[in-house]
């Protein structure tokens, strides 16, 4: 018997090739990311999903591609392949949701500019092309500076600040950006103890507001203490997940290979963390 043509049953249709879908709640989803410099791969096949409201430490040996991973996510270095989704959409369309704290050495601190003006730059994305900076934006910047405890240094030229104060200026600028997802490249590098404390407090405050922070971090002894998620990176993602599952001796061994000095340090860190 010949069936009369009817509307095909939806279930009987061949399923379309599987496209990875990302829930709009996922702050950052990286698919199949590869980055190369002069045809030499620096990052290889990175797949990473970062859940919302986490403080994520990105950890790995020198040359593991930690900074490159951030720069590739932010379109600052070209991707050989792969894609980066921020809250369910390509990064290009979600710039306003993303804040960036570059490495301190990436800028010239002799540039003729005051601390307040650097922080105000965090609002430029909202102000838009050709439009002038208004009092509203400077107030936002001033609040951010006071938030990180250096409101009294607002007028000072940036070369006249200590390393810790310069790092606070960068963090204040990120606050002024008012993003939901933050990329921070070694904010703890060469800062004094009180600035380190201030950064940690700030990170927890951001987390409490449901914001997500990715932080490149060097000091293995503080990873377990500072972060609730860890990405172990060495060209590839060795392991990523909650700190208590991922930050283990075997995984660190796999990440750092035979670098004994570092392993010693890591072992100490693990003992400190009580594992």
């Amino acid at each position: 018997m010949i069936q009369t043509p009817s509307r095909p049953d939806v279930d009987s249709l061949p399923t379309p090739p599987e496209v990875p879908t990302h829930s709009p709640e996922m702050p950052l989803a990286i698919d199949d990311l590869t980055v190369a410099y002069h045809n030499k791969p620096v990052l290889w096949d990175i797949d990473l999903d970062i859940p919302e409201g986490k403080l994520v430490g990105i950890v790995g040996p020198n040359g593991a591609g930690k900074s490159t991973l951030m720069k590739a996510c932010l379109d600052l270095v070209p991707k050989a392949s792969g894609r980066v989704m921020v809250y369910g959409k390509p990064y290009k369309r979600q710039r306003s949701l993303v804040g960036y704290v570059p490495q301190r050495e990436s800028v010239d601190w002799d540039y003729p500019i005051s601390a307040l003006d650097v922080v105000t730059m965090g609002t430029y994305g909202r102000i838009g092309l050709f439009r002038p900076v208004r009092k509203l934006h400077r107030d936002t910047a001033m609040n951010a500076l006071e938030h990180v405890g250096i409101g009294h240094l607002a007028k000072r030229q940036i070369s006249q600040l200590s390393g810790g104060q310069q790092q606070r200026v960068f963090l204040a600028r990120a606050l002024a950006q008012d993003a939901r997802l933050y990329f921070m490249d070694e904010p703890f590098a060469a800062v004094d103890a009180s600035t380190e404390r201030a950064i940690i407090d700030l990170l927890h405050e951001l987390k409490d507001q449901g914001k997500t922070c990715l932080v490149v971090h060097h000091d293995l002894s503080t990873v377990a203490q500072y972060f609730d998620w860890v990405v172990l990176l060495n060209m590839r993602v060795v392991k990523a997940g909650p700190t208590e599952d991922v930050f283990t001796r075997e995984n660190l061994h796999a990440t750092y290979g035979g670098r004994l000095a570092l392993l010693e340090e890591a072992g100490q860190a693990l003992r400190d963390a009580g594992r």
Binding site: K71, L74, D75, L76, R95, V98, Y100, P102, S106, V107, D108, Y111, I113, D117, V118, M121, G122, Y124, G125, I127, L129, F130, P132, V133, R173, Q177
Partner: peptide, 22 residues
């Protein structure tokens, strides 16, 4: 004058400039 803040930002910190869409 018209692009004062864009020139300022992209001279001081070109990476941040790109991430905020300048």
């Amino acid at each position: 004058l018209a692009l004062y803040k864009e020139f300022n930002l992209s001279s001081f910190d070109p990476a941040l400039a790109r991430t905020v869409g300048v």
